[in-house]
């Protein structure tokens, strides 16, 4: 991981992302492997000395303390020699409250705040100790949709201003792709791929990554002469180096296009279509009883029962 970067840990539930985050923080312990901060081995370091800022999914604010006391907690917890003076702590708390735009809230208690406000307090509390790395566990998981969107943008701004090295865990692809500098996709405890949002979307490292990042249909295809063929017709998809014979082709809904039967790789009849936000999704039933979804601009309408042909404009094949 690079300094100052915002890394999103993405994976389905149970993929081990929270566990990984907790291991980095020193709250859980690895069976094997090491945790490196910079060049230092932090594996044996107790959680108190790791200098991480951890924001818990449900915030874990101290309910009996005011907002200011919550934020100052990490500074007050230091040994006397390292502890800043009272006035200095007060100033730092004030700065952080400004940063999270809750300046008037210093004397409130957590029970008097909304979910989004608690989330921001939890973040300020973690930032107060000037952590080497900020760890966020499903930071927006417990919030409703609108607050979630606002906070996402806000977190990105905070990150851009502070340059704080940050790892956050999420199971929401949109969230990870929108927020992160780089995304790490985890599945069943294995790291599948690390890359920028563009890299993981354009060149998913495995079928797991591909499936997790969005809908895809799976087709039987043949690799021949560096090309992938479906139904004996060539597609624009290049075959992996050295691959010959049957392969699996994964196609996104927007990589299918309606076409004349002569140019089509697939055929079927329209089952239904739905319009939403300037796009339409058309359900197509091929003869083999499967269920395809095609995504297109909201233009020509398709009636149920209408026979159509589909051309493949792109796709992914894994060796």
């Amino acid at each position: 991981m690079r300094a100052g970067e915002l890394l999103g840990l993405l994976g389905p539930s149970g993929s081990g992302k929270t566990t990984l985050l907790r291991i980095i923080a020193g709250l859980d312990f690895p069976d094997r492997g090491r945790i490196l901060f910079g060049g230092d081995d932090a594996t044996g370091l107790p959680v108190q000395q790791r200098a991480v800022g951890f924001v818990f999914q449900h915030y874990a604010l101290f309910k009996h303390m005011s907002v200011a006391d919550n934020i100052a907690y990490g500074l007050n917890a230091r040994k006397r020699a390292d502890r800043p003076a009272k006035a200095e702590i007060r100033r730092r708390v004030g700065d952080l409250l400004d940063l999270i735009k809750l300046s008037g809230f210093a004397d409130r208690y957590p029970s008097q705040l909304s979910g989004g406000q608690r989330q921001r307090i939890a973040l300020a509390r973690a930032l107060a100790v000037e952590p080497r790395v900020l760890l966020l566990d499903e930071p927006f998981g417990a919030l409703d949709a609108q607050v979630r969107k606002d906070l996402r943008r806000w977190l990105r701004e905070i990150h851009d201003r502070t340059g704080q090295t940050t790892i956050f865990v999420t199971h929401d692809q949109d969230e990870a792709l929108e927020l992160s500098d780089r995304v790490a996709v985890l599945d069943r405890g294995r790291l599948e791929q690390v890359g920028t949002p563009d890299e993981v979307q354009d060149n998913p490292a495995s079928a797991t990554v591909l499936r997790f990042l969005g809908d895809a249909i799976e087709l039987e295809a043949i690799a021949e002469g560096g090309r992938v063929l479906v139904d004996g017709k060539p597609t624009p998809v290049a075959a992996p180096r050295g691959a010959v014979g049957p392969v699996k082709l994964f196609v996104r809904p927007w990589q299918l296009q309606f076409a004349d039967p002569a140019e089509s790789h697939l055929g079927g009849t329209v089952r239904a279509s739905h319009r939403s936000q300037g796009r339409q999704r058309i359900e197509v039933a091929p003869a083999d009883g499967r269920h395809l979804v095609v995504e297109d601009f909201d233009g020509e309408r398709y009636a149920a029962g209408q026979p159509v042909g589909l051309r493949i404009n792109g796709g992914y094949v894994f060796a």
Partner: peptide
Amino acid sequence: EGLGASLPIDAP
């Protein structure tokens, strides 16, 4: 400053 965790990890 680099930070890395060696994988894979299992459930605790």
